[in-house]
Computed example of a mutant assay.
Amino acid sequence: MSSTELPFVPPADLLSKAAAVRVAEGERLRSVRLPGITLAVRSRPPAREGLPPALYVHGLGGSSQNWSALMPLLDDVTDNEAVDLPGFGDSPPPDDGNYSVTGHARAVIRYLDACGRGPVHLFGNSLGGAIVTRVAAVRPDLVRTLTLVSPALPEIRVQRTAVPTGLLAVPGVASLFTRFTREWTAEQRVRGVMALCYGDPGRVSPEGFRHAVEEMERRLGLPYFWDAMARSARGIVNAYTVGGQHGLWRQAERVLAPTLLVYGGRDRLVGYRMAQRAARAFRDSRLLTLPDAGHVAMMEYPETVATAFREFLADTGKSAAGTDTEGAADGVPANESTGG
């Protein structure tokens, strides 16, 4: 694995028409080259040495910037990094063009294996939630805890407001949409995305909206933007149809790590009704429901999510201590997972 600091201006061969990648105060952005992929990794210095590592994975159309509001609130309890999935943020497309949930999960695993930071506190939102669920199921050695914000797990009755996103998976639709929306400004696109993803778009500050517009303009300058979106959307749809041991709900049941679930009552992409099913599927889970939040609670209510994670850490720490004691007395292995 090789790692280099990313400049504020992205590589000219990929982003000749794009603006600079935004790096918030206190953040560092570096490029990590691995076999078959190059990943941009956003990080913050921890408050002190020796804190357990955390890795954050964004959703469809997002980037590591989606976690910039939450990470500073956890600097004193975790050593934080957020990854740009291949083809998103500042990460170029994967060499093999694989944007499936499994392909993205493989990229996360490859990074964790190469950097040697595991096991980590693993966070995922939307598509990222499906990805890290798969990571936790197949590589439990890499995961301390799992935090899922509106994870994109299969739904039988998909919300009507989520249908347009799913239609991106249909071959040819992305190119048709591109032609249809050619005259749309970056501001119009951002307002549409925020109306879909936020419970109350009015919570976005003028500065936050301006940064989002700048990022949208940058992404629209990427030659692979719509291809990455369409193929990743297709990956979600395909993952929804997989049954047996590779199905996402079956893999959720296999997750051993303590899991914090966060669902928004105004989510237009992932059904709020799925919260209870997820709480039953993950064997050691805690559920936080935010009635006024939409699809990106960590961006809308970062303080609330941070507080819930801190309490979750304290709770899992007490459980681990209790398990050690009980295991010694009852002959149960100290790492045996119990239902929650």
Rank of each mutant, 00 (worst) to 15 (best):
L85Q: 08
P86A: 09
F88Q: 07
S91K: 11
S91I: 04
D96I: 03
G97V: 10
N98H: 02
Y99W: 14
V101L: 14
V101W: 05
T102C: 00
T102E: 15
A105W: 01
R106V: 00
A107T: 01
V108R: 02
I109H: 00
Y111R: 07
C115M: 06
G116C: 05
R117H: 13
R117Y: 04
G118V: 05
V120R: 07
V120H: 06
H121S: 10
L122F: 09
G129L: 05
I131A: 05
T133C: 03
R134I: 01
V135D: 02
A136V: 10
V138E: 15
P140E: 11
P140D: 04
D141M: 02
D141G: 14
L142Q: 11
L142R: 13
V143W: 08
V143K: 04
R144G: 01
R144H: 07
T145Q: 01
L146M: 08
T147M: 12
L148V: 06
L148R: 04
V149R: 00
S150M: 04
P151M: 07
L153W: 13
E155H: 02
E155I: 01
I156A: 14
Q159I: 04
Q159H: 00
R160M: 12
R160V: 06
R160S: 11
R160P: 01
T161Q: 10
A162I: 00
P164L: 03
P164S: 05
G166M: 14
G166F: 14
G166N: 09
A169E: 03
A169V: 11
P171E: 10
G172I: 08
V173H: 07
V173Y: 12
A174P: 08
A174N: 10
A174L: 09
S175L: 14
F177Q: 14
F180H: 13
F180I: 11
T181M: 13
R182F: 10
W184A: 15
W184M: 15
E187V: 07
V190Y: 04
R191P: 00
R191G: 02
M194E: 10
A195K: 11
A195R: 15
L196S: 14
